[in-house]
Amino acid sequence: MLVVSLAAGVLSLLLAAAAAARTGRDLIVRRYRRGRTVRRVLVAVYATLGLGLLGHALIPHPETPHVAEAVIIAVLMALGVTIALMPHFRISTPAASTPRRVLAIGAHPDDLEIACGASLARLVDAGHDVHALVMSHGAVGGDPTRRPGEALSGARFLGLASVTVHDLPDTNLALTENQMIGHIEDAIRRIRPHIVLTHSDHDQHQDHHAVHLATLRAARNHHSILCFESPSTTRQFNPDVFLEVDDYTDIKVEAVLAHRDQSGKPYMTPSVLTSTTRFRGRQAKSTHAEAFEAVRLLVNETGVL
């Protein structure tokens, strides 16, 4: 029984560790509804059972000879319940009848996740080919040696097909408008997107506004441009397009949290992120949504909303 207890305890702790690790995040949070809660529960249950079994095996308790058997049964039951219930929590997004290409353009490494991370994940799950373009390393607002890697991590977690991070001057993007236009034009030629997402005209951050203007100029001949909402948009931000993201708010939160260099900023917190999607969901007569302003939208060409 000692060997069995030790083996069951080690197995439980390994399951807890797997759920807590990045692979667990990628598997559970990215693929299951309420994934952050599910992940926390799995870690707590398996860690508690594992520590209990190891403690009982290493510190004999003659007065409770059957505790180990009970805990082993609990481990097996927890594993069985996990296997049985997980399919019911699986995110199931209808596949698009015609997959499209999407290009999302942001000023800084965390902008896209904060503004429309849930929408990007949902579009990926529907089968669309989603690409990201970031204009700066965010050197003024954080550590430029870390932030590009965090952008790659966030994009990988969301499932984006590609992310390109340029190193134009943070807080001074307006001074490099022609370079930005060139980068965006190159991306449009390469990706041939059916829809372009970018910052709003109603954004008081100078870099966000500069990217908006550069996008309009680079995509002057493009038929479908939507502008997303960032924490620095003004009261004039007036969305007319919404995408329901009920199953994707936890995914958005986890993608934002991948930007650990920015973790001290209040708009990066789960409560702020979820309250925003809940507010926009209420406007859209749904539970959670992300909001966009349409510069123009040729519906029969986009096929992604």
Rank of each mutant, 00 (worst) to 15 (best):
R189E: 14
R189S: 07
R189T: 08
R189G: 00
R189H: 13
R189D: 13
R190Q: 08
R190P: 01
R190G: 00
R190C: 03
R190A: 09
I191K: 08
I191M: 07
R192S: 05
R192V: 02
R192D: 09
R192Q: 14
P193W: 09
P193L: 10
P193N: 14
P193M: 15
P193I: 07
H194S: 11
H194V: 00
H194T: 01
I195K: 14
I195Q: 11
I195H: 05
I195T: 10
I195F: 01
V196Q: 13
V196Y: 04
L197D: 03
L197C: 02
L197V: 01
L197W: 04
L197N: 06
T198E: 12
T198C: 08
T198H: 05
T198K: 03
T198Q: 04
H199P: 04
H199G: 04
S200D: 03
S200F: 06
S200P: 14
S200Y: 09
D201E: 14
D201H: 15
D201A: 12
D201M: 15
D201F: 10
H202Y: 13
H202K: 15
D203P: 10
D203A: 11
D203M: 08
Q204L: 13
Q204N: 11
H205C: 06
H205R: 14
H205F: 09
Q206H: 13
Q206L: 13
Q206D: 14
D207S: 11
D207P: 07
D207R: 15
D207W: 11
D207Y: 13
D207I: 03
D207G: 10
D207C: 09
H208L: 07
H208R: 06
H209T: 00
H209D: 06
H209E: 04
H209R: 15
H209Q: 13
H209S: 02
A210T: 00
A210L: 14
A210E: 01
V211D: 10
H212V: 01
H212T: 00
H212I: 04
H212M: 09
H212W: 15
L213K: 09
A214M: 07
A214I: 03
A214Q: 01
A214K: 03
T215M: 08
T215I: 06
T215C: 05
L216Q: 04
L216S: 00
L216M: 12
R217M: 14
R217G: 02
R217A: 11
R217I: 10
A218M: 08
A218L: 10
A218H: 05
A218N: 08
A219S: 07
A219F: 01
A219D: 02
A219P: 02
